[in-house]
Structure formats: C-alpha cells, structure tokens
C-alpha cells in the first residue's frame, strides 16, 4: 500500500512534536522575569533630599542582570570652556547634545563590557561608549563636535549625580521564593520631577535573553507644587509677593533691632 506524501509528512511532524515535548519535560522550568519598584511615586515635599528606591523581582538563576533607570531623551544645550589668547579660560561657545537622557543610572551584576557584546550594548544604549556612538553633538554653527565633549558631558552629569554606571550592586538570592534579586538605589535629589523608566535586562552568553520594565514618578506635592505653579502661571503676582515679603522682613528686623537698642 502506497502512502501519500502528505500522510508521511504529517506522521513525521507528530513524532518530532512528541520528541520536543519529552525534551521540554526534562528541562528546568523557565522563570518569568519580573521587576517591581517601591515606592511607585516619590513625593517632593519641602524637606525632600532624595529618596531610597527598592527594586525587586525574579529572574532565571544563571542570567546576569542589567538595570537601567532613565528619563525621556531630549536635546541639552551646554557652554564649553576654552583658552582665549592662550592665557585665559572662558566660555567660548555652545554645544548641543542631541537626544540624551536627563538621568541615566545603570546597575549590573558584573562588568557591563564582559557580560554583554558590543552589538547588544549599542542596540540597548548601555554604557557611555554606546551612548556616545548614538549621540550627535553640534557646535553653535551646526558642525559636529569631537568625542571628547561627550566624555566631558558624562563627567559633568556624574558630578551632578544623575549619570552613573555601577557594577556588583544587584543582590541575588536563590531559595524557596525562587531566584530573586534586589537593589536599593539612592535616588538623587538633583533629578528633576518627571516619569522615569526602569529597564531590567537578563543577559546570557553576551546577549539579552529576557527583559522587563516598569516606571515610577517623581512628583512635586503640597507647597512645592503650589509655588512652582504660581511662579509660572501668575508670574507678576509671584514677583510682587517676593518683593513685598523681602521688604517686610527687612524692615521688621530693623524694627526689632531698634526695640532691642541694637544699633544705638
């Protein structure tokens, strides 16, 4: 009895599927990657001086981790110093850094360059070299500027505490609760209000194998929010209030000193 070609193909497909199913049963169950941040909202109050962010989640046990916290990218205008007349240091001109994040904090389990290939680093914008390749820098006349200015830019931002790359800062635990990780980030008060992205990447053999993401918000509240709003929406009233309070404070202290006989 002759079997049709279609029947042969169908039978072999069924055998292959059964074999793959057996293999899947013998392999360890793949762990879904998760990423959670606490708190989800950081309130900027009058006494705000930064915050502590705790980021936790589950990952596969053998993967290395890269955690990137960043804000929306935008163009940043800067002035650069240079020598004038070979003698004095002055602000010589402007540079525009195109499409760079305002905040860029990266934490990893190991040295970024060792756990991730250059191609992947470039694709996911991880590390200053990858960022430098993707960032256009233009001077006042729209001409491209040298790479050294990108290094100066990251140095400037690191001094402001809003750019940083750290390794070995993520703690891993393998136990009853599964394979978990935790990192506590000292959130810098210099970072402006806004929504921030957290990207968690699981890395194996130099490649990104899994990822998760979440967000959190840094938000002005109470009197800080009210005053910021007033300065923008009612600028004239804000200016008059600033002048009147300063005048009142100055004359009131003058009167107090008179009563105390301080100046006589």
């Amino acid at each position: 009895m002759k079997l049709s070609l279609l029947t042969v193909v169908t039978r072999w497909t069924a055998v292959a599927a059964a074999f793959c199913g057996l293999l899947a049963l013998n392999a360890p169950a793949a762990q879904a990657i998760t990423c959670e941040v606490t708190p989800r909202e950081i309130p900027i109050t009058l006494s705000y001086h930064g915050a502590k962010l705790t980021i936790t989640g589950q990952t596969a046990p053998d993967d290395d981790l890269i955690l990137k916290i960043s804000s929306e990218s935008h163009d940043t205008a800067m002035k650069y110093y240079g020598k004038v007349g070979g003698l004095v240091w002055m602000k010589k001109g402007g540079l525009e850094f195109k499409d760079v994040p305002g905040v860029y904090l990266v934490n990893t389990t190991k040295d970024l360059n060792l756990i991730l290939s250059e191609t992947e680093r470039n694709q996911y914008q991880l590390g200053y070299d990858a960022m430098a390749k993707a960032t256009k820098i233009e001077d006042d006349k729209g001409r491209p500027a040298e790479r050294k200015w990108f290094d100066e830019f990251t140095r400037f931002k690191e001094k402001e505490m809003i750019y940083n790359i750290q390794q070995g800062t993520i703690t891993r635990q393998h136990g009853e609760k599964g394979n978990t990780f935790e990192i506590v980030v000292n959130w810098p008060y210099q970072a402006p209000p806004g929504i921030y992205n957290i990207d968690l990447l699981a890395v194996n053999n130099g490649k990104v194998v899994d990822k998760a993401a979440t967000t959190f918000e840094v938000k002005r509240v109470g009197i800080i929010a009210a005053l910021s709003k007033m300065a923008v929406d009612q600028a004239a009233l804000y200016g008059i209030m600033s002048v009147l309070i300063a005048l009142a404070a100055g004359t009131a202290v003058g009167a107090i000193f008179k009563k105390g006989g301080g100046s006589h």
């Binding site: 004239a236 008059i240 600033s242 002048v243 404070a249 202290v253």
Partner: peptide, 26 residues
C-alpha cells in the same frame, strides 16, 4: 530686578530667597 526676573524669566526662587534673607537681614 527681582520683579523683572520673576515676571520675565521665572528665575526667582522664593524659598531660597527666604533662607538667605533670614540670615542677611540680621
């Protein structure tokens, strides 16, 4: 100057001024 800076440039920080003037008036 204070009025013009607050009105045109929104660059007067009232809380910073309060702290400074608390010291400076004395």
């Amino acid at each position: 100057v204070t009025f013009l800076q607050a009105y045109s440039n929104r660059t007067v920080d009232f809380f910073l001024a309060l702290l400074l003037l608390f010291g400076s008036v004395f």
